[in-house]
Design a protein around this nucleic acid. Structure first.
Lengths: 151, 151
DNA sequence: GTAAGGTAGATGCATCTGCATGTATGTGGG
DNA sequence: CCCACATACATGCAGATGCATCTACCTTAC
């Protein structure tokens, strides 16, 4: 190692700190507005959307729980119980995965596809209102590119 | 996420949608990394930091709960209970607010100031590592500016 | 003064989350 | 085959959150 005298902890620049705080605050604010729209429309929690969307996209409308986990960043134990709730609402069903006794399929039902579409009817305009309307197209593209660097 | 155009409601552009998803995912990822650092350092929840910081900044090290609420975006009922926890840990104390019998002061203690500093010793480098190191200074400034438009 | 309505903050309850661990099944080395 | 270890998913429990509501106090209009 080069001549680093002291392992003094590196501190963030003002720009970095403001970017981080801005990230927390912006997502907080926008999320609150979108959730308010969801609530006003009598829709289930926003978090359900991601799972339904991933399933609707997937071939055969089915994925293994660990695949959903990777796509959505949900924690394993949270996903397990979220699936329970979706099953209870009839939006997905569990099916055996024959090639591996530990595994299972999560399959979206017709009701699940319908619900996802119904949610998008609120979600889409809500994203447009609370994000799109505040940014030009170039800015949105730029923002997405910058955020992608944080992953 | 694909652009869906089905009825009259205004739909977000692909750029807008990607910005929104990027916002959710980026904060998710970065937050998980920072919280892992906190946990590794045996520190209390990250959320405590904001309250302690606001109090440490404030004149006399004291604020009214509703002032903390406005500064941190915490919900009233969450803040009420968060203060309970901070009191229990001896990091803040409640004091009567004489000019209004409904109100109270929340005052940071010496232990609270010490804890905030100790948290920053982890938090600062963590922000630098997970945000600063991934962006140039110009990018960080740009990101902060774009995020500010969403509030 | 007093009734009506507003604001500050707390709290009961149901739900959700994090954490640790449990159960069941798979896999690889000897 | 057997044992150790890994992977897929579930779950008990404690703590956190959202929601609605409650109490207490304040302000205004009359």
């Amino acid at each position: 190692m080069a001549n680093e005298t002291k392992n003094e902890a590196k501190r963030p620049s003002a720009e970095t700190t403001e970017a981080w705080i801005g990230l927390m605050r912006a997502r907080e604010r926008v999320l609150a507005r979108i959730e308010a729209d969801f609530k006003a429309a009598g829709l289930p929690p926003l978090g359900w959307y991601d799972v339904l969307w991933e399933l609707a996209q997937a071939e055969g409308g089915r994925l293994r729980p660990f695949e959903i986990e990777a796509r959505t960043l949900l924690a394993q134990y949270n996903l397990s119980r979220l699936i329970d709730r979706l099953v209870k609402e009839g939006l997905v069903r569990r099916e055996a995965f024959d090639a591996d006794g530990r595994g299972q399929w999560v399959v979206i039902t017709e009701a699940g596809r319908t619900m996802r579409e119904r949610m998008w009817q609120t979600y889409g305009p809500s994203i447009e209102a609370h994000v799109g309307a505040r940014l030009t197209e170039a800015e949105a593209r730029q923002l997405a590119a910058l955020l992608a660097k944080l992953r």
